[in-house]
């Protein structure tokens, strides 16, 4: 049973990382708590559904297109809705809530409230001793980890990443160097939404799709990001692992109710000891 628990923990952690990364990026750069993040996950999932079921594209082609579509819509949202709220946490939060409700309503009108499913690109299971590892979950976790690694390289090894880190750390100093933070905001928001869309597109074949699926995604992303520290990418990664392992272990041995309770107690305990979260800055 221990192997099974570890496998479940690893799969969940990888997915939580992907969900939380875009959310924390947007907060780190724009100081906007994007409550519509879950709806960009939903957009990615519906895009894959529409591209595969509607246009007959293969999943391999639909996956990047869906992520790009979510990223593109995120970029547009930043230009049209969030630009004026950069740095205004309350205003941005209210705008993001309004956007979330609007996107849910739009999806319900376009696709109805019926659940939809996407055919799985990978099927079957791997057996490791007594434990079972579904190949579709392994594919999602592997892809998620690759996306996290690519994001890490982008932020740490490129000039663009350097600019992103600079704007997150001190936008005023960056402006003194001749770089306008406002030029980076659309890209940061777009990348955040692209990661959300990728998470939705990846998980669409694992679960069913419906207009309100973003609510679950934002809940998980929010716990991870609060635990890891708002705006901190390494913190979000550490928190994803912590949450994944805690949930898998406690759910298996003590039940789901105890697991939910433990997640929130862990958030409270860490915030009491370190109010900025595991990797957050004051």
């Amino acid at each position: 049973m221990l192997t099974q628990v570890l496998l479940i923990a690893a799969m969940s952690s990888a997915l939580y990382m992907l969900l939380a990364l875009g959310f924390t990026l947007i907060f780190g750069i724009l100081r906007i708590v994007n409550f519509a993040h879950g709806e960009f996950v939903m957009i990615g999932a519906y895009a894959v559904f529409a591209l595969t079921s509607g246009l007959g594209l293969g999943y391999a082609a639909a996956l990047p297109l869906a992520a790009l579509l979510a990223g593109g819509l995120g970029l547009l949202a930043e230009r049209a809705l969030f630009r004026r709220y950069a740095g205004d946490e309350l205003g941005g939060m209210i705008m993001s809530l309004a956007l979330a409700i609007t996107l849910q309503g739009a999806a319900a009108v376009l696709f109805t409230i019926d659940q939809q499913s996407v055919e799985r690109p990978v099927t079957g299971v791997l057996r490791i001793g007594d434990a079972v590892l579904p190949k579709d979950q392994l594919f999602v976790a592997g892809f998620a980890l690759a996306a996290v690694a690519a994001f890490h390289l982008l932020v740490q090894r490129t000039r663009f990443g350097l600019a992103l880190r600079a704007v997150a750390q001190d936008p005023e100093t960056l402006r003194l160097q001749g770089v306008s933070p406002r030029r980076l905001y659309p890209a940061a928001f777009g990348i955040g939404c692209l990661l959300a869309g990728l998470a939705g597109a990846l998980t669409a074949p694992l679960y069913t799709i419906h207009p309100y699926m973003g609510e679950t995604a934002i809940l998980k992303a929010f716990i991870v990001v609060v635990l890891g520290g708002l705006g901190s990418v390494p913190g979000a990664i550490a928190a994803s692992v912590l949450l994944g392992v805690t949930e898998a272990a406690v759910s298996t041995w003590l039940g789901v109710t105890a697991a939910t309770l433990t997640s929130f107690v862990a958030v409270m305990a860490i915030l009491l000891v370190k109010p900025t979260g595991l990797g957050g800055r004051a």
């Binding site: 049973m1 479940i8 799969m11 969940s12 679950t216 759910s251 298996t252 039940g255 789901v256 109710t257």
Partner: peptide, 20 residues
């Protein structure tokens, strides 16, 4: 006899417990 949260989508942990 197990319970789950309504917003849950991944049941592998609780199913591992049930199947045991």
């Amino acid at each position: 006899a197990e319970l789950f949260e309504r917003q849950q989508t991944d049941f592998r942990a609780v199913l591992t417990r049930i199947l045991a």
